[in-house]
C-alpha cells in the first residue's frame, strides 16, 4: 500500500512542487486548493498524512486543522504544516489548532519527506 498524502495549498507553484516531490518519493498524492476543499476531499481520500499551508483563502490552515481534528473519522491523521522561517507564533497557533508537526519553508524535498516519515508508520 502506498501512503496517501493530502496536500492543501493555494499556491499552484507549491502544489506542483509537492506533487512532483511526493510522487517521486512513491506517495500517492491528493491535492486541495484551500481549507474548504481540503475538508471536502478528506472525506473521499482517507489520507495517511496531511500537509497544509497556513495562509489560504476561504478557510485557512488553522481552521482546516481544527476541522480535521473535529472529524470523528479523521481526527487521528497526522497533519504537517508548511510554515515560513520557523515563525514561532504561527507554529504555536498551528499546534494549538492540532497540527502534528511542521515543515519550514523554503520548500525542500528532503525535509518534506523526512517530516512525513516521522509522523507516519
Amino acid at each position: 500500500m502506498k501512503k496517501k498524502v493530502l496536500t492543501v495549498d493555494d499556491s499552484r507553484t507549491i502544489r506542483n512542487m509537492l506533487l512532483v516531490t511526493l510522487n517521486n518519493a512513491g506517495f500517492e498524492t491528493i491535492q486541495a486548493e484551500d481549507g474548504v476543499e481540503g475538508l471536502e476531499v478528506l472525506e473521499e481520500c482517507n489520507p495517511d498524512v496531511i500537509v497544509t499551508d497556513i495562509n489560504m483563502p476561504r478557510l485557512d490552515g488553522f481552521g482546516f486543522i481544527e476541522g480535521v481534528r473535529r472529524n470523528d473519522k479523521y481526527r487521528a491523521v497526522p497533519i504537517l504544516v508548511l510554515t515560513t522561517e520557523s515563525d514561532a507564533e504561527k507554529k504555536n497557533r498551528a499546534r494549538q489548532a492540532g497540527a502534528t508537526g511542521w515543515i519550514v519553508k523554503p520548500f525542500d524535498p528532503a525535509k518534506l519527506i523526512d517530516a512525513i516519515e516521522r509522523v507516519t508508520a
Partner: peptide
C-alpha cells in the same frame, strides 16, 4: 510500512534530492 521497498525508494528519492539540494 508493510511495503518496505517503497519506503526505501522514498528515502532514496529524499536523499538524492537532498544531495541535489
Amino acid at each position: 510500512d508493510d511495503s518496505a521497498s517503497e519506503e526505501d525508494a522514498a528515502e532514496d528519492a529524499a536523499s538524492i534530492q537532498a544531495a541535489a539540494a
